[in-house]
Design a protein around this nucleic acid. Structure first.
Lengths: 196, 196
DNA sequence: GGAAAAAGTTGAAGTAGATTAGGAAATATG
DNA sequence: CATATTTCCTAATCTACTTCAACTTTTTCC
């Protein structure tokens, strides 16, 4: 399927557009293919784009001084990814965004996004809606992280996002869920002390 | 100072409005005074409003089956608060929002917010901007929670949000930062084992 | 302004999950 | 298709933080 068509179909889940509007919207996106392990956002460089995933899998992560990587966000098809703090404020990024497998993306340049929003209030509405949905989902994630045990967080994730499990290596998922890869391995193999 | 004036001044930090637009915007807000310990959002009831804090302090929190409370968000003057997951999707709330001290709020009804956004694209832009800023700030919070120790999270908070410390009881702050009130007490009094 | 309730403190003991280290699978690539 | 690299697993040891319990201080409110 044509990637440009996909983004037009995606936006129309949230707002209704004429054919002309839909094709104007799609025209601002550029198809990008990335290979596994390729970076599309890097610390100290401003994230100039946000990315809609057509196919594949990516993650954003931070690295601390001792080299430990922590996954902050995950994305498969139909999800968006970038370093939002960098993109929204057009400031230097603190994160990497990396392809976990070869992927097809639609990139939207920050300036083009501003043009879209200026050109038609419907597009402004669209970006407002996806920001609000992101906000609500991050509120749920913060709540999970503060209130649930490692095992409960993993169980919740597998039930809520089963499609991710096929694409995300365990080391990336573990730090996303706030635990080590060793501990996640024990959970998955039911070897947590005190569990049957 | 007139509370309605404050919200007009607040929105103009983000977008410029004519006097008429500013007063149209302000007119949709209703001044509400709440006393300490009063709830403005409760689980199972849909959050029909979002609240801009003129003066005072509030928190949102969840309660688990064993009665333990976890603070999810904090708000003092110039901040917004509600259960966003409930408000945005107009679904039953899972959180309480409670006044930590007697406060003056400006409440915005969900329906009135929709009217505002329909009436003028500038208002759509405003709500998009505050959603995006919330998104970026939550991304930072998730990163902190996943990568820093309890003591580092506390130190970061005191440096970044010193104004909150005067208003927020320690038990509320502790669970917001993802630790027990006992442990936060030890951090504050430098009694953490292995620390000088 | 005095009693009761709420909030904060301290220390001892316990535990969820981290760290370390080594080996086994799986996957990539020449 | 073999071997190098990456990912995953297991188990012993360790620790950052929790739990519990008793106490002190601060705040509330009749």
């Amino acid at each position: 399927m044509d990637p440009q068509y996909q983004i037009a179909s995606y936006i129309q889940r949230f707002i209704s557009l004429t054919e002309e509007e839909a094709s104007h919207f799609s025209s601002k996106f550029k198809v990008v293919k990335v290979r596994k392990k390729q970076f599309i956002v890097q610390p100290n460089f401003t994230a100039k784009k946000r990315f809609y995933v057509v196919e594949g899998a990516l993650r954003s992560f931070v690295v601390n001084k001792s080299g430990q990587e922590t996954t902050i966000a995950l994305a498969i098809n139909d999800w968006w990814i970038t370093d939002y703090n960098s993109y929204i404020f057009q400031q230097p990024a603190t994160m990497f965004v990396e392809a976990l497998e070869s992927s097809t993306l639609l990139e939207l340049d920050f300036e083009k996004e501003q043009d879209l929003k200026k050109s038609n209030p419907k597009f402004e509405t669209f970006f407002r809606i996806i920001a609000e949905r992101g906000l609500a989902s991050q509120q749920r994630r913060i709540t999970m992280n503060l209130t649930k045990s490692a095992e409960e967080r993993y169980t919740y994730f597998t039930e809520k996002y089963p499609q991710f499990l096929q694409h995300i290596p365990q080391y990336a998922l573990a730090s996303y869920l706030g635990m080590t890869t060793e501990f996640l391995s024990k959970i998955r193999n039911n070897k947590v002390k005190g569990k049957s």
